[in-house]
């Protein structure tokens, strides 16, 4: 048991130095939700065709600009025959309390689970740096997409729904054509500074 724990922590520290690359297996993640349940990636993938891990914030205006689009995305992913891709939102900001996250989720009417990543451990594990930032994991646990939700924060001039396209391509058996994208966002507020 102790040996497994040491091995797990070793993996954590090796991976956290650089984050995960496309095609890498995402280690099992287990985080508490605001609803009191514990959410594990492995369990989530067992009942679905994939999972979107979405780093969000209560305070970051860039993340908040997407609140409505988070809900739209969650509904699109989870609705329809054979299209059940789970969306798990993760809050890794040390500066945002559980109460604040709960209130924010309720006020915004989020239709997906919001998980609290205490100590930003999952953010470290994946190499997440900002909000919003999305990871799409296939049913086999491989990372298939990492990056932005779409190409326009304001939502008025979206020309590319990058995350949705990646999921759709995967669900239709195609290779994800653009597996990595970037966008501006708020730095995830970790306990230690994010200096590299």
């Amino acid at each position: 048991m102790l040996g497994n724990l040491v091995a797990l922590l070793s993996i954590f520290y090796v991976v956290s130095a650089a984050g995960l690359g496309i095609g890498d297996k995402v280690p099992d993640l287990k985080l508490p939700g605001l609803d009191g349940k514990s959410y594990a990636l492995k369990d989530t993938l067992t009942g679905s065709r994939g999972a979107v891990l979405l780093f969000i914030s209560t305070q970051c205006p860039y993340s908040n600009a997407y609140n409505d689009r988070y809900n739209v995305l969650a509904k699109e992913l989870g609705v329809g025959p054979g299209k059940s891709v789970a969306l798990l939102a993760i809050n890794s900001n040390e500066t945002e309390s559980l109460d604040e996250i709960r209130t924010h989720a309720r006020e915004k009417g989020f239709v997906f689970p919001v998980l609290k990543d205490a100590g930003s451990k999952v953010a470290d594990l994946l190499g997440a740096e900002r909000t919003p930032e999305a990871y799409f994991v296939g049913a086999d646990g491989a990372l298939l997409y990492h990056g932005r939700i779409d190409d326009d924060t304001d939502g008025k001039d979206v020309t590319s729904r990058d995350l949705k396209r990646a999921v759709d391509e995967y669900l239709s058996g195609k290779k994800v054509s653009v597996p990595q994208t970037k966008a501006f966002g708020c730095t995830i507020k970790r306990t230690s500074k994010g200096k590299k």
Partner: peptide, 14 residues
């Protein structure tokens, strides 16, 4: 634009 500033930057500010 962010790639023009730094190719390895994720876009997180500051």
């Amino acid at each position: 634009y962010l790639n023009a500033i730094d190719q390895e930057w994720s876009g997180a500010l500051p």
